[in-house]
Design a protein around this nucleic acid. Structure first.
Lengths: 369, 369
DNA sequence: TTTACCTTTGTGTGCGTACACAATAAGAAT
DNA sequence: ATTCTTATTGTGTACGCACACAAAGGTAAA
């Protein structure tokens, strides 16, 4: 009859007894010792003779013992306090999604008795980071999640964490030599490089484009933004060296100020019809274009804030590059559970995908957990 | 000093006793009954008086009891057999990634005593699906994952599953009126619409483009492919009505045959420099272009098979649309665990993101779990 | 030989839940 | 009143693991 089918069995890559997993009891019987001794070996506690330790370890390896993490977590019956240190932000901002993801993960892993307390600092006030960090440390948390936006203050704090043996996870941006347990965020340089390729497609044959920049408290954006710009310019240098890239600095203090800056710029350069921002506030430009009925202007930006989504939908923004902020938050909590409770091995550097969003695939972006 | 920070506490949205979660024991004490009675209420088993049932239910709601799923799974000590029914495929094909994702999930959830057995059918041989399904049913699985590629045979099988009360999950493509427990896959129409927008950008001002199609055993591709095409044509109709779209049917029987078809086509249409495929075999075109040194040809396709990735890297393919096949596999297993073991609520329709991949963001696509 | 002390090993209980079984109460039948 | 039946409720054990404590064995000192 039909020879056109067959089957295959996957039973998790764990050795099995008749049916069901190897337990500590099985190891004990095989090695001729009690479960207590096996337990001591597993947790490398003292009080085991060399001979039985070796015997147990051999059987452990032979049977490829994998502990039941849930039973283990249940028995240990510990509570875990996680603390999080984030830039102060208002509703609708990027960091809110990160927090939402963390909240989701806390819910999912609530059976592990975890709790999360978040502390905020104003990234534009010198010393605020360390002040918030001090408050945080009074909690004596079991692990910390933070965004290393203020590099040198972060270094100071990280040393404290290391002294206390508290593991810490970086989120959004990375400082590799501070050696976090893990990092979740985008490869900013590559995302700028990618953005450049797409923008050049959008720009068609235009000879000039514009980069809108955001200046906060005199600082030229975050490290993330700077790295995106670097990637962007690298692509343009490699592929379109004779393209003219203008830069326009905005300040987002009073909307009027930005508006007149934009007015001045486009009065001077009426032919420029393509631009990009490397911060999350492309809606400022989008809303300006809508107000001034410049429907020909092609525009790109970062992050799916509600106002940016609105711009995508009304066509003033063509593309948004997203970086799964919710997933970053979710993963950072998950990572701590895996490390502290389930004792799984953690991958240190975790780049988020560089997602290109248009009005067409927008809906499905949020669908993915 | 610094007023620029504050804190916030998230402790999972679960009511708590002093510290730690509400347990069955707590409910029992509050309601003035034994844990056995609470257990009977929780599982709506018989043998509880109306009065105590009401009392328990009231306390349950008051304290917002959330069972510890891991303790529950541990105590119930059941084994779960999952079965999977997929199209027969060779190494490097799309379905292999789906299987990889399922394998990963089986590993992650191995503490729940789950096992997975996969059955294959030749989607081009009539009756093979149901023959494989019969084999599958001999396992008497607790749940089934399948790709409903052969619509009418799927209908027959689904009726059997419903009669046996076996939950089933659709993967890759959906047939909503067959009412699966869940569906994981892409919105094919929208992805075609999205593809059209990007392709038009790539095509610049070209007046003609080409769609390469794959004919298997006389069938014009899967439902997925057809829906992508529909979305594609819809976009073109709405936005670029006077664009000429050529279609070229290929057969992938002997490479020579396809090659001469391509030769003929491009001899007849030497000016066409932009094309797309809606199946996963864009590498056939990419490799042809490389062989014929047509570096000007702009090309798009679907799915990150190794040969497609190679084409992305050597520049013969510009964009690939991906659909997270690994995540589809992973999610389908996870969904069954959530439903059967953890008793969580399942979302029925789960569209995967429509991801646009270039050589720039390729690496990070695979990084996301 | 007895006692003390330390090393090594085994046993018991608890984590929160599920389920089998025992116990109790209430009512009906004798 | 006694026995039987049935409806209701409580208790005990198990799941796999962690950890406290008890027990056993060995060595050295008194």
């Amino acid at each position: 009859m039909y020879q056109k089918y067959f089957k295959k069995k996957i039973k998790s890559e764990v050795m099995e007894r008749q049916q069901g997993r190897i337990r500590i009891k099985d190891i004990a019987r095989q090695a001729g010792v009690s479960v207590g001794t096996v337990d001591r070996v597993l947790h490398s506690r003292s009080g085991v003779s060399e001979s039985s330790r070796l015997r147990v370890e051999k059987v452990l390896e032979q049977l490829n013992y994998q502990p039941n993490m849930y039973a283990s977590a249940l028995a240990s019956n510990k509570k875990y306090r996680f603390a999080c240190l984030l830039p102060l932000h208002t509703a609708g901002e990027y960091w809110e999604s990160v927090e939402e993801g963390m909240g989701q993960a806390v819910g999912v892993y609530s059976d592990f008795n975890i709790s999360l307390e978040t502390f905020y600092y104003d990234q534009y006030v010198s010393g605020a980071f360390l002040a918030a960090a001090k408050l945080l440390m009074e909690l004596s948390p079991d692990a910390v999640i933070l965004s290393p936006t203020v590099e040198q203050e972060t270094s100071v704090f990280v040393v404290q964490l290391q002294e206390c043996g508290i593991p810490y996870v970086f989120i959004d941006s990375n400082i590799p030599n501070l050696n976090p347990l893990a990092f979740y965020g985008q490869h900013a340089g590559r995302s700028g490089y990618f953005a450049a390729r797409i923008l050049k497609l959008l720009a068609h044959d235009s000879k000039e484009i514009v980069v809108f920049r955001q200046i906060n408290e005199g600082r030229l954006g975050s490290n993330q933004q700077l790295h995106r710009e670097e990637g962007f310019y690298q692509y343009m240098k490699e592929h379109h060296e004779n393209l003219t890239v203008h830069e326009l600095n905005l300040y987002a203090k009073q909307p009027d100020e930005d508006e007149s800056l934009l007015d001045d710029f486009f009065a001077k350069h009426p032919d420029i019809n393509c631009g990009i921002t490397f911060n999350s506030k492309v809606y400022i430009i989008g809303e300006y274009m809508r107000k001034n009925r410049r429907e020909d202007f092609r525009l790109m930006g970062y992050d799916l804030l509600q106002r940016n989504v609105d711009c995508l939908k009304n066509g003033t923004v063509d593309f948004i590059i997203a970086q799964q902020p919710m997933l970053q938050g979710y993963n950072s909590i998950e990572c701590l559970c895996n490390h502290l409770i389930l004792k799984k091995k953690i991958k240190q550097c975790n780049y988020m995908p560089i997602d290109l969003i248009t009005v067409d695939n927008l809906d499905f972006y949020f669908d993915a957990q």
